[in-house]
Nucleic acid binder design. Sequence first.
DNA 1: TAAAATTCTGTACTGAGTTCAGGTTCAGGT
DNA 2: ACCTGAACCTGAACTCAGTACAGAATTTTA
Lengths: 209, 209
Amino acid sequence: MTGSGQGKTPHCPVGRVLGLRERKKLEAWRTIRSTALRLISECGFDAVSVEDIATEAGVSRTTFFTYFRSKEAVVYDLDPQELQQWRELLADAPGDEPLWEALTGLVLSLAELLADRLPLQKRLFQQSPELCDSSRDVCDSFGPDLREWVARRTPDGDELHAALVINTAFAAFNTAIEAWDPDDSFDHFLDLARDCLRLAGGGLARSVS
Amino acid sequence: MTGSGQGKTPHCPVGRVLGLRERKKLEAWRTIRSTALRLISECGFDAVSVEDIATEAGVSRTTFFTYFRSKEAVVYDLDPQELQQWRELLADAPGDEPLWEALTGLVLSLAELLADRLPLQKRLFQQSPELCDSSRDVCDSFGPDLREWVARRTPDGDELHAALVINTAFAAFNTAIEAWDPDDSFDHFLDLARDCLRLAGGGLARSVS
DNA sequence: TAAAATTCTGTACTGAGTTCAGGTTCAGGT
DNA sequence: ACCTGAACCTGAACTCAGTACAGAATTTTA
């Protein structure tokens, strides 16, 4: 907190240094998010209003909505730094693997990125089904990036195939989340996700019954 | 409108006769629905309020919400009679076909059931993306039935597989809806849906690239 | 035709999300 | 250090979706 020898020279090993403004912004984001998750996990999603969250986080209701576009978003959105990691994952993804395999890898990496928040999120989903519903395609933070990544790897004129691949991968991932018990280990969740992706990619028509 | 010789004897060929109460209810449902679709397709989903719809349909705002659980529902929900047809389809579905094939057939039948409203709906989706998002799993009317149908055909302990199959089928169906141009023929949509279902069921990992 | 059951309506409320004018804080140049 | 413009935060006022409820109107039944 007390300016510790970071005078003028940007020695920061990872990325560039953040100005005061940006640091405060990130801090505010995290304060709001953690306050929200705490209140919501204590009282339930519906029992907590945006006003409650804002007040408790020491910020105005209006400010809440400049950070999060909806009340649900505060549960779903990726931390800005996680988002950056996710973008790096996408950028570094190998270009020679078959599409579905590469996609499987990405989705599993994403899961690991979310690891610490997933059990809580799953518990919130169990509490309020409507929250669960709205999560479907409000993969606001990573969805668009991933779509673009797939599109870039898709030969022209096969947008249908690209869309199908993405939607199916999401379906598999969501199925794993639905099936997972948050009291089980995270590795168990990864196994579930792997299974779902393998089955969905490998041909459901061919599987048992 | 003027009671036309339906005195007391229920001669109605299809199902049992409806009492005055039930007839009025169905009529009100359809008035609200068609009014809503007309207004919304004229002005856009966001530009029309529930109040507008209710007033124009000659009914109170409160009544609107006894018929439709949300503003979106008035776009999605199945007509009560269509819902009945859909249930009959489920009941009559052959039990010997492999699961994925049977499911494909059902989904395609469902599409035909929705045929006349689909172009309009697709146009509305294009107008307001948020409406589109919310449609994901707000398959409120037929979703639960279909899930139950699949569950009944699934051996015990394989709920994961059942969920995966359903979610993947929805993903394929939604992909077809997304890709479809409502100015194209409905048959073209059916072809798209068929393709998506075949690909998703047949193994995306095996397909090109 | 009277009583019982349903349905409709107006009113009032909560809470999400937006807009906006004005105040506060930060960044960069002098 | 100071000034200026830009970014940011805030409170207030607003729209609209969705819910609760009490009483009026209508349909059913007996």
